[in-house]
């Protein structure tokens, strides 16, 4: 399969500190890829560089085109959606407004109503809370809203930064079942996740990052059985 996302030689610097050093990886169409690593390994920086929030050197190829110089908001239009760490929903705006903002890039071309229907069928809870302010939602509902907002942009590649962070174990299960549904519907996912055990059951492939460099890569099953991964990330 052809890679939908191809990153090569990506380096991200914060001042004099290099958070990501010449990282290369790819995500093939329809795959779920997980980035594993300790805090500060550079996982979030990689996602931010792919979605255009921060500058990076190296190349980011999306569907065969170099998008390294494309501003973040235009990358959304091309099909890259990023659900950031901590969800970052618009707390003072209603669920409706949050979702409509997610469909911003398609608003002039129409079809937003249909997207809205699709998202609300997927997350019936959001329909119940439709006119409520985003900030009044529970943690799990806010996560749904963040997913829903991202889905409104009709993403081809969904970047997820710690989707299970701050959620109860029951909600973590729910989040992963949703991610699995996204995957089954044909979406490509690139996930950064602390909960390595859960992430590896969902993923097809994984990369292990350490201090801004890729240390290991392989299929999820391989990495799941790797003694190093088991010790460092699966708590053995």
């Amino acid at each position: 399969m052809t890679p939908i996302l191809e990153v090569s030689g990506m380096t991200v610097n914060y001042g004099v500190i290099a958070a990501v050093r010449s990282v290369s990886f790819e995500v093939r169409s329809g795959e779920v890829v997980v980035l594993l690593g300790a805090n500060g390994a550079g996982k979030s920086s990689i996602l931010k560089a792919v979605s255009g929030l921060i500058a990076s050197s190296g190349t980011v190829n999306f569907e065969g085109a170099d998008i390294g110089m494309v501003p973040a908001h235009e990358r959304v239009g091309r099909g890259v959606a990023h659900v950031p760490e901590g969800r970052r929903i618009f707390c003072n705006l209603s669920v409706k407004e949050n979702l409509l903002l997610g469909g911003w890039v398609h608003a002039s071309k129409g079809g937003v109503e249909k997207d809205l229907d699709r998202v609300l069928t997927f997350f019936p809870r959001l329909k119940e809370r439709f006119n409520q302010a985003g900030g009044t939602l529970s943690g799990g509902e806010q996560q749904m809203l963040a997913f829903g907002r991202a889905l409104m942009s009709r993403p081809k590649l969904l970047l997820l930064d710690e989707p299970s962070m701050g959620l109860s174990p029951k909600l973590v299960d729910y989040v992963f079942s949703m991610l699995s549904d996204f995957h089954k519907s044909g979406m490509t996912l690139l996930i950064v996740e602390q909960n390595a055990a859960m992430a590896l059951t969902l993923a097809s492939r994984a990369y292990v990052l350490e201090a801004g460099e890729i240390k290991l890569s392989g299929s999820a099953a391989e990495l799941h059985d790797n003694p190093l991964v088991r010790r460092a990330y699966l708590g053995e």
Partner: peptide, 17 residues
């Protein structure tokens, strides 16, 4: 709505396109 999203969280606004 875009104006409001800038007030709420400009980075999130960027990420929604």
């Amino acid at each position: 709505r875009g104006v409001l999203s800038v007030r709420e969280d400009e980075i999130a606004a960027d990420l929604t396109g």
